[in-house]
Amino acid sequence: MIKVHDFHKSFGDKLVHKGVSFEVQKGECLGLIGGSGVGKSVILRSLIGLEKPDRGLIEIDGVIITGLNERELVDIRKKVAYIFQGGALFDSMTVFENLAYPIREHSKTNEAALTEKVLSQLQQFGLQGSEYVYPAQLSGGMQKRVGIARAMMMNPEFVLYDEPTAGLDPFNTKKIQELILHLKSTGVTSILVTHDMPTAMAVCDRLVFLLNGRIEAQGTLAEVKSESNPLIKKFIDGEAS
């Protein structure tokens, strides 16, 4: 379970979050939506300790992570996978080495077992044959899939997706949606930050709509759409405001 309580965050004079609170139940997929610059990714980054909130609490799997230092965060980070918007693949490593990275760092798996696991993961994500190429030689869609495949190598209990379908064509978007749904079916708890409403509608159980540093609406798609604020309906329907 993920709990965010009274989350405040500012950058310089700009107050981005003014007390955001929400919960994500085990096995649930929560969509964090809102216009550009409302700080969706800031919340996501804070959930894994890449940013520190100015005030408020973040609890993951019963552990309050606000206030933990880098060393103390390691155990939580092993359970939480973060899918970066641009993939954040290590460009000096091959796809194989990228996928092997978390295993080599956190377990003592022998090379034969590691190779088998990486190849099987590549197969599962439709990336077979690309193990010895470098990230720069892959298309955007493939890079995102490699990013997800790498994040899944440690069998995480929680997955945080930061705009996983941004900049992708409809075919690759569909593939990413299927991957998210597949992972959800395995019981993974996830949060999806996105502008892509069709994807949010396809994979999320609940939505949280952020506006002006606060939660403007939250609930199921129907509940969020029924809110009185016309901006929310326009955002969900993809109309110009």
Binding site: E70, R77, Y82, A88
Partner: peptide, 14 residues
């Protein structure tokens, strides 16, 4: 800039 340092941290490494 390409978030590789963030990725190193996010995967529990330094």
């Amino acid at each position: 800039v390409t978030q590789q340092i963030d990725a190193i941290r996010a995967m529990g490494t330094s």
